[in-house]
């Protein structure tokens, strides 16, 4: 039983990261109905930018661990958000009126560009975050050793999701985003500047992805230029699992996916872990064709 709970915390830690990346996927999808395949690479860029800022500015020394980290997170989120906006302006905006799949190919092209740009700038070798930035404290929960940083990561993703949910549901700008997601034409008629909404979405979504990249760097220490592809795919799976376009769905999907992977590895087979996760996904979609929390969409006639 103890092993079961240990594996559960393993799954929650992985799932928290998936969820955070999935949030960005789902936001962009909700408004544009675009699967942003470059999202995983924005996550990579977040991890690399975080490393550069961390090693070049020594924020921790001047501001202390907490405020230094906070500033670092904000800077990374801001920069990756800007890259996201640029990406949209260059690669997606000209394709708004064309078939949806054209934008998908453009996104795949952008993914290749980002990946190789990171390789050319930082080199193909693995990059490593300096160790011991965060205190390595292990706390005991019901006699089970759990590293503190793992709890912090989960808390941070839940906090970000909560903040995002509040922003979308309770603020005026959030209402505009929801309106644009519902029906762009009608939103425009109501006086909402849809272009600005899209820009905002491309600021927030990639920023969350960048934050996730920074967290992965801080926690696991090792980053490389191809890592975004796997994380991006997992996050896309998570977003679909929860019902794409739905913010709590991304969170539920991410955490569920992490837990399925950990338990699948523990009790069935490690080598088949990803296959098991996809199999469960397919089963869920057969019975709930729009994901766990996705709304059932009536076909318009």
């Amino acid at each position: 039983m103890e092993e079961f709970f240990q594996q559960l915390t393993n799954g929650l830690a992985v799932g928290g990261i998936y969820a955070l990346i999935a949030l960005g996927y789902t936001m962009v999808y909700g408004v544009l109905k675009l699967i942003n395949f470059a999202h995983g690479d924005l996550f990579t860029i977040g991890a690399y930018l975080g490393l550069t800022l961390l090693t070049s500015m020594s924020l921790m020394d001047s501001l202390g661990v907490f405020f230094g980290l906070l500033l670092l997170v904000l800077m990374v989120m801001g920069l990756v958000g800007l890259i996201g906006v640029l990406l949209d302006q260059i690669a997606y905006k000209p394709l708004r009126q064309s078939p949806r799949l054209s934008a998908v190919v453009s996104a795949l092209g952008a993914s290749i560009v980002f990946q190789n740009a990171v390789m050319l700038i930082y080199g193909a070798r693995f990059q490593v975050y300096p160790q011991d930035i965060l205190p390595r404290i292990v706390i005991n929960i019901f006699g089970m050793p759990v590293p503190l940083i793992r709890i912090m990561i989960l808390m941070a993703s839940i906090f970000m999701m909560g903040a995002l949910y509040f922003f979308i549901q309770r603020t005026k700008v959030g209402t505009a985003i929801r309106a644009a997601a519902e029906d762009q034409g009608a939103a425009r008629l109501m006086g909402i500047d849809v272009n600005r909404v899209i820009m905002l979405v491309f600021l927030i979504g990639p920023a969350l992805g960048g934050a996730a990249g920074l967290m992965v760097g801080l926690y696991y220490g090792q980053i490389n230029f191809t890592m975004g592809w796997i994380y991006g795919l997992k996050a896309f799976t998570a977003a679909i699992l929860g019902g794409i376009g739905n913010i709590p769905g991304a969170m539920v999907g991410g955490i569920l996916l992490g837990v399925i992977e950990a338990l699948g590895a523990a009790y069935i087979s490690i080598a088949w872990k990803d296959a098991i996760a996809f199999f469960v996904l397919i089963l869920i979609l057969i019975f709930r064709p729009t994901g766990l929390l996705g709304e059932r969409v009536a076909e318009k006639i």
Binding site: L95, Q97, S98, S102, S106, G109, A110, I112, L120
Partner: peptide
């Protein structure tokens, strides 16, 4: 080493200019 970077960029440009 720039091979794939150029390829990716070419994909985007072709898609932007011939959106269909």
């Amino acid at each position: 080493n720039y091979r794939l970077l150029m390829f990716g960029a070419a994909m985007i440009f072709m898609m932007i200019f011939r959106t269909q």
